Amino acid sequence: MENYTFNSPTLQLEGLNVSKDSMYPLFLFLFFSYLFIIVANVGITLIVFIDKTLHQPMYILFCNLSVNDILGNSLLEPRLLVNLLRPPSERIISYYECVAQAFTTHMFSTTAHTILMIMAFDRYVAICNPLRYAVIMTNKMLIKLTVSAWGVAFVLVGILLGLTIRLNRCRTLMRSMYCNNAALFKLSCESVFINNVYGLTFTVVLFTSSIGSMVLTYTRIMVVCLTSKNKSLNSKALKTLSTHLVVYLILLFSGMSIITLHRFPQLTESRKLVAILYHIIPGSLNPIIYGMQSKEIRRFLSKLFDFKKVLPSF
């Protein structure tokens, strides 16, 4: 039975409802997924840092996506893995740690969208204004875009969680596997009308801006490709765009699935699984998609493995 308290310093997470037979296979799946996300994204980031030929805006912006995947998963999955092996009564988390985890969760989602938006802008400039690309995408512009991607997300999510922190709590059971804003403000017995309005506005603005920028930039790029007679340029442009589009659609579909499943309380367990996959799938596929698409990254890996082959063995 749920305990009713007043501003309790600790909360209880609901967790996944899985059988004992499914618990360990699920644990291993999540563990190896997390391990792959960390290794792949750290690897991509190191490759871009080491190889000077990759010191280009496109790859530096992609490193932001890798850093976001590392942070978003590292502050979520370890506790999720531990709680999976614990009985429900021991899935305890402090309120302030829960707020920090909720902030990280929403930052991960919001920043992924803002980073992909500035990456779309970068591709737009590269394809539609190739002669002015070096003039527009300077180091100063790159810093501005990066700070904007993280800064906008920080402010929007900060307001989102700030509206929740102001509420008094009369419940301790979180109806979620990990902390998020909706689960937090549902602990309150006060009016959450402002939270719902801002949360809805926040979601609509983020998705409208994200989808709108993608449609606009892709439309302009497609027009340039269709009117250009440079087949080599068109082929390279379409290859880059298809990679970016796949990454964006994966993120968009995952996010929309969670929002949709929130409308069906009877599908709570399905929503929990989708919420986990929302972190795992983009974080796992992003380095694979960009790594396989990038000729420069493939060349670096090829040289690395060839170098290891010729090393003398002792």
Rank of each mutant, 00 (worst) to 15 (best):
N3F: 10
N3S: 06
N3A: 08
T5C: 10
T5D: 02
S8I: 05
G15H: 09
V18Q: 08
K20Q: 14
D21A: 13
S22A: 14
Y24K: 09
L26E: 00
F27N: 07
F31V: 08
Y34R: 00
F36N: 04
V42G: 02
V42M: 06
T45L: 06
V48K: 08
F49G: 01
F49V: 09
I50R: 12
L54V: 01
H55P: 03
Y59T: 08
I60Q: 13
L61D: 00
N64E: 04
N64L: 07
L65W: 02
D69S: 13
D69T: 06
I70Q: 03
L71W: 03
S74L: 02
S74I: 04
L76S: 11
L80G: 14
V82D: 09
V82R: 13
N83M: 10
L84A: 05
L85M: 14
P87E: 09
P88A: 04
S89N: 04
E90A: 14
E90K: 15
I92E: 07
I93W: 00
Y95E: 04
E97N: 14
E97C: 06
C98N: 07
V99N: 03
F103P: 04
T104E: 06
T110D: 05
T114R: 03
A120I: 01
D122P: 04
R123E: 10
C128G: 07
C128S: 14
L131D: 13
M137D: 04
N139T: 10
K140S: 14
K144Y: 12
K144M: 10
L145Y: 09
L145W: 07
W150R: 03
W150H: 10
A153V: 03
I159R: 04
L160Q: 15
L167S: 10
T172M: 13
M174I: 15
R175S: 09
R175M: 13
S176L: 07
S176R: 13
S188T: 13
N196V: 11
V197H: 08
Y198N: 02
L200W: 10
L200F: 11
F202H: 15
F202T: 07
V204H: 04
V205C: 12
T208W: 00
V215H: 07
L216H: 11
T217S: 12
R220C: 12
V223W: 02
V224L: 01
V224Q: 14
T227R: 10
S228M: 05
N234L: 07
N234P: 00
T240N: 15
L241E: 10
S242A: 09
V246F: 04
V247L: 15
L251D: 03
T260Y: 11
P265V: 08
L267M: 14
L267G: 00
E269W: 12
E269G: 02
S270F: 06
H279M: 05
P282S: 09
G283W: 04
N286L: 00
M292T: 08
S302Q: 08
K308I: 01
V310P: 00
V310M: 11
P312F: 08
S313Q: 07
F314C: 02
F314P: 12
